[in-house]
Nucleic acid binder design. Structure first.
Lengths: 195, 195
DNA sequence: CGGATCGTTGATCAACTTCAACGGTCGTGG
DNA sequence: CCACGACCGTTGAAGTTGATCAACGATCCG
């Protein structure tokens, strides 16, 4: 399981054996059942978590009780309430498992330690965040410029590898659409493809 | 001008004098007139730019010719088409000056060099991107969960210090609203405050 | 078997956009 | 110094997209 993490890191930066040995004990492995919370809103997000296996979602709940999904994270992704993790203030997001999931977690303190002691990890996270910023920019742009249909099609394309693992109403929640809207878009496409 | 940059960096990480001297020649100073492009879509974004003075915007133009503003950057902010900068592919965004502006620019090559030679800068950018991710998350959440009015009020609050420097129709473009909508929201608020 | 979960369909409704026209202000060139 | 155009905000009326509400059908699983 730790190997999944190291493989992922080494796609971006080189790690020496001693560095790997330094990193290993900083991470804690954990298994989550389907529907189990990793974090609940108003707790403090104490750990950054890496997904070795399975699928998680982060979401917040608005005043009217509607859930809005912020992120899906599967094998090879990181997830957290980043704001809460950095500031140690109350989390706004909930995070829970959509499948049986295995994660590796690092605490705020150890994260700081890690980035200070292993500059390669500073670099790794810098590159990770860099890429993440690019995709967030795209998503943001998409959310204001695209129609419901365009958003859905783009999502389907981008998330093709795990599309089958995400129920439609959660895709709707992620895209900020009503589940009915997704349903109608798909019907329209079906008949179009058929005609 | 270089001092503005160094001050900004030293709010996040410590730099030694030799490091500062190493950094200085990597940046190129440039002045921009109002309306002058820093980058146009379909060019390659060759530099990361730091704003020492003035105000820039990045935006893209959709199929119908509508502009969608992605970011405002004023004193102390960085701006670029990050995707293009990282991949050296064609830029999707335009960047231009909304005021007389002074910037410091670093090339893709020197950026790589900088982060490799000065680990503190790897760390600086890591922290910068970290924070940026948090605000992007908030904005994304806001764009799907909030009404037009909530979005505008949130913007007005967050951008209070430079609100006077941004014309209303550009705020509309940033928020993904019609200019008329902003106008109506403000009117509603005025009469409300008066009553 | 029975409840939970998920998707579908139709009807109505609300928020925001679009279109069109107008008024004010600012800066610049004649 | 004034006149004109560019730029910006405002207002009203009509139009559209997607949300909401309500009901139903299918599948999965304990």
């Amino acid at each position: 399981m730790f190997e999944v993490l190291v493989d992922h890191i080494e796609k971006k930066v080189h790690l020496t054996e001693p560095e790997k040995e330094l990193i290993r004990p900083l991470f804690m492995a954990r298994k989550l059942r389907k529907k189990q919370y990793l974090l609940q809103a108003s707790e403090v997000c104490t750990h950054l978590t890496f997904v070795a296996k399975g699928l998680l979602r982060s979401y917040n709940v608005d005043d009217k009780g509607n859930e809005h999904i912020n992120q899906f994270a599967w094998e090879g992704w990181w997830i957290s309430d980043f704001y809460s993790f950095l500031t140690q203030e109350e989390a706004l997001f909930n995070i829970d498992a959509m499948e049986e999931t295995e994660v590796l977690m690092i605490s705020r303190h150890d994260y700081e330690e890690l980035t200070l002691k292993v500059p390669a990890m500073d670099r790794y996270f810098r590159i990770l965040y860099q890429n993440s910023l690019v995709t967030k920019d795209r998503r943001l742009m998409s959310s204001t410029t695209h129609t419901a249909e365009e958003k859905y099609l783009q999502f389907a394309k981008r998330y093709a590898p795990i599309l089958g693992r995400i129920p439609q109403h959660l895709i709707a929640s992620y895209l900020g659409l009503a589940p009915e809207t997704i349903s109608r878009i798909r019907r329209k496409r079906m008949t179009k493809d058929a005609g």
